[in-house]
């Protein structure tokens, strides 16, 4: 464990690098997925095509995707941008489906009564549909946070610096503490980001406190969410 104390700087630095890789991917995939998820909710034909595409994407092993992506992006397989694109794609594959479910799950009666009291189409989306889908969207986001942070370490084998570098380096030099530090740091990062997201979610959606029916899905662990789907 001495290794950890004498290399705190290095671990901290890699944590920042790791954040710089995963946070853009998480945000990007969320922003892109919500409209796509809405399309899948709104149009039946789109739903089949989009959800199948996401399913296929998700079945592709990460290492293979990292190597194959440059064919489409022109980036080098070893570049950080390539990794961010791959992480974003996986994020999209998860959130689109959750988003479609989230929009589906909002009760028709509520939407119809919103129309009945005079919401415009756009107003209804921003004022009623999106906020009510919020808790489920949040749960999808939480799944992506955990998986993205963990997945970003894979880039280390193609030479992209991240907390994963502690694994490759630790293995090469035979330092067990370095690998364990990497695993712990990855988990800590995931837990902290997840906690922050939950806190922001509560601020933005004060009505969805745990214990309330609508909040049950968002307060469940992200993993449970993923598996229930």
């Amino acid at each position: 464990m001495n290794w950890i104390w004498s290399n705190l700087d290095r671990v901290g630095e890699l944590m920042l690098v790791h954040l710089a890789l995963s946070v853009p991917a998480i945000i990007l995939s969320f922003v892109v997925s919500v409209p796509i998820g809405w399309l899948a909710h709104r149009y039946r034909w789109a739903s089949g095509v989009l959800l199948s595409l996401c399913a296929l994407l998700y079945a592709i092993p990460s290492l293979a995707l990292l190597i194959a992506l440059p064919v489409f992006t022109g980036q080098r397989a070893t570049s950080p941008v390539n990794l961010v694109v791959a992480l974003t794609l996986y994020g999209i594959a998860v959130i689109v489906r959750t988003a479609a479910d989230a929009f589906d799950a909002v009760e028709r009666d509520v939407l119809q009564s919103a129309t009945a009291v005079g919401y415009s189409t756009a107003g209804r989306f921003w004022g009623v549909h999106l906020p009510l889908a919020g808790p489920v969207l949040l749960s999808g986001l939480r799944v992506v946070i955990v998986s993205t942070v963990s997945l970003a370490t894979v880039g280390a084998v193609t030479g992209v610096q991240s907390l994963g570098s502690l694994f490759t380096d630790g293995l090469q030099r035979g330092i067990q503490a370095e690998i364990i530090a990497g695993i712990l740091a990855t988990i800590v990062l995931a837990v902290v980001l997840d906690g922050l997201t939950v806190a922001v979610g509560r601020m933005v959606m004060p009505w969805s406190r745990p214990g309330m029916e609508a909040a049950r899905s968002s307060s469940a662990s992200p993993v449970e969410q993923a598996d229930a789907a």
Binding site: S150, L151, T153, G164, L166, F167, T168, Q176, I183, T186
Partner: peptide, 12 residues
């Protein structure tokens, strides 16, 4: 278990 980075577990 799911939060574990696979590469880390393999290396360990």
């Amino acid at each position: 278990l799911r939060a574990l980075p696979t590469l880390g577990v393999l290396s360990l």
